[in-house]
Every structure is written in C-alpha cells, then in structure tokens.
C-alpha cells in the first residue's frame, strides 16, 4: 500500500524527510513560514521553523497562513508524478512556474508580506515537495 495523496499521511511523510535530510535543509538556510496547500477543496497546513518542517495539519483558517498554494488534484498529481519521474521537479513543474503566468496553480494570500515568504523561502519549499520523489504514492 502506498501513501495516499492527498492525505495528512503524505505531508507527515514529507515532514519526516526534512528531518532525515536535515543537512540538506540546513544548507538552504532558515525557513520560517506557515503556509497552506489546497488540493481541490482540502486544505493542509505546513509549518516550517528554522530549517525543518515542524508541523503539518488538516484544515485551518487560511487568513492565518502566509499563503496557500491551491490547485485541483489533477495538477498536484501531474506535479508529483513529474517529481517522481525526475527525482525532483522538472523545469515545467516547479512551484514558481506553476504559480506564474497562467496561474495553473493559484497563490492565495491576504498579506503581501506573507505572500513574499513564498519567494523568500522558495528553494526550501521546492526541496520539501521534491522529497516526494522518494515516496510510494497512491492518488485518490
């Protein structure tokens, strides 16, 4: 049985990877942000503190998050499959590319400073999602 996506279990597995790969995340530097990942209508909360992901959770108030990366399941699936096929996001499936012109993935936010945290910590957030390359996934 693989890890279902989307699920809290998936994000807990990524969280664990930030601990297992502590040296790689430390090299990227501090990352202090609480952001959301919305898959369809399901919202997950990801909390980064210092170098690692310290908490993941389901639901919550989006206005308390720095930003939310929001996309339908199909897009997340496409992105994760690209990550798994390439050992990390290929050029067409990075978070920045998906959220830039065309907005196939939406960035929701209320505070521009919270929004800018996506850019300040982009390398860490990308590395966090790239850790899915080592997971056995099952899509809903």
């Amino acid at each position: 049985m693989g890890i279902p996506f989307p699920s809290l279990e998936f994000f807990k597995a990524l969280q664990q990877r930030t601990k297992d790969e502590a040296a790689a995340f430390e090299k990227l530097g501090y990352c202090d942000t609480t952001f959301g990942i919305r898959v369809g209508s399901e919202l997950y909360r990801v909390v980064f503190e210092i170098y690692e992901c310290v908490e993941v959770g389901e639901g919550g108030d989006p206005s308390e998050l720095d930003f939310v990366l929001s996309a339908p399941l199909d897009l997340w699936r496409e992105m994760l499959e690209a990550i798994q096929a390439n050992g990390g996001a290929d050029a067409a499936h990075t978070i920045n590319t998906l959220t830039h012109v065309g907005d196939v993935m939406k960035v929701e936010y209320e505070d521009p400073e919270g929004h800018d945290r996506l850019y300040r910590f982009m390398a860490t957030i990308q590395a966090f999602l790239d850790e899915a390359s080592g997971l056995d996934l099952e899509f809903a």
Binding site: N96, D116, F121, A123
Partner: peptide, 14 residues
C-alpha cells in the same frame, strides 16, 4: 537557470 532564478528571487525578496 531554474536554480539561479530561484536564488535571485529569494535575495531580492529580502
């Protein structure tokens, strides 16, 4: 180019 742009954005945003 992806990595260069990513670091560029991070630094600019600070």
């Amino acid at each position: 180019d992806t990595r260069l742009a990513t670091y560029f954005v991070q630094d600019a945003t600070r």
